[in-house]
Simulated assay, not measured.
Amino acid sequence: MSRVEVCSARIPPCSGRAVELEAGDELVVIDPMGQQVSDLTAFSRDDTAEYLSSGRSIDYASKLWLSTGDTLYSNRSTPMFTILEDTCGRHDFTLTPCSKKMFEIIYGETEGRPGCEGNLAAALAPYGISVDRVPIAFNIFMHVAFDAEGKVAVLPPLSRAGDHIRLRAEMPLIVAMTACSAGQSNNFSYKPIDYRVERLAG
């Protein structure tokens, strides 16, 4: 069966957006310029106490880096997404969304940018989801490495212009995404993220 595009948009640098998906919809997240991270989180539309869980997803996949064929699970162990395509192959599901406090602690910034945490919360606010409920996100295109002693390094993304990941929604979802605001995550260049939603025709 053919699919039709039901919406598409560009997320400007250092901002966020939310979109609602039906079960079976396919969400394509695209890095149009290369080396730009998108933090993605999701909540069940039927009960927003159910949310995308990094811990459950990593546990059931038995690996840190999830890609084509892997399932992303909720905190209730329910499949939320299946990864259908992935042209980059490296994303992170361990580090929390950047925030005002993180910018202060890591970068010494004092201007109070909202970061992905604040941008996700702003996108989710119309659904009654507050900043304290923003979980660890699926950090699309983010390149995190660990050495033998467990030390964490955030490296430049491996994504090139036009790379994408295609996710199939396995339940009705509220999804929030960002064009990440953390310099280290994006090789210190802030760029947009594109996305589109495709649905079975008819």
Results as ranks from 00 to 15, higher is better:
Pro156Lys: 04
Ser74Asp: 13
Arg199Cys: 05
Val175Cys: 09
Ala176Glu: 01
Tyr51Leu: 14
Gln36Asp: 12
Ile106Asp: 09
Leu158Asp: 09
Tyr60Ile: 15
Ala201Ile: 11
Arg166Ala: 13
Pro172Tyr: 10
Met33Gln: 12
Val175Gln: 06
Gly108Tyr: 01
Ala201His: 06
Met142Arg: 06
Met142Phe: 00
Leu72Gln: 02
Gly24Trp: 06
Asp132Glu: 14
Ala23Trp: 00
Lys63Ile: 12
Leu158Glu: 11
Gln35Leu: 09
Ala179Glu: 05
Asp70Cys: 15
Met177Cys: 06
Ser53Gly: 10
Ala169Lys: 03
Pro12Tyr: 06
Leu173Asn: 01
Leu124Gln: 04
Pro192Phe: 04
Ser8Thr: 00
Arg45Pro: 01
Ala137Ser: 14
Val175Tyr: 02
Leu66Tyr: 05
Arg166Leu: 13
Trp65Pro: 02
Ala201Leu: 11
His143Phe: 12
Gly89Tyr: 15
Ile106Arg: 02
Ser44His: 03
Phe103Glu: 08
His143Asn: 15
Ala49Met: 07
Ser44Thr: 03
Pro135Trp: 06
Tyr127Asn: 05
Gly89His: 12
Thr96His: 12
Met142Val: 08
Ile165Lys: 02
Ile106Gln: 04
Tyr195Gln: 02
Pro135Asn: 08
Glu26Pro: 00
Ser57Trp: 02
Asp194Pro: 09
Leu95Thr: 02
Ala153His: 03
Ile193Val: 15
Glu109Val: 04
Glu5Ile: 14
Phe103Ser: 07
Pro32Met: 08
Glu109Met: 13
Glu50Lys: 05
Met142Ile: 04
Asn186Pro: 09
Gly69Val: 07
Ile83Glu: 13
Val28Asp: 03
Thr41Phe: 05
Thr78Glu: 12
Ser2Pro: 15
Ala121Phe: 06
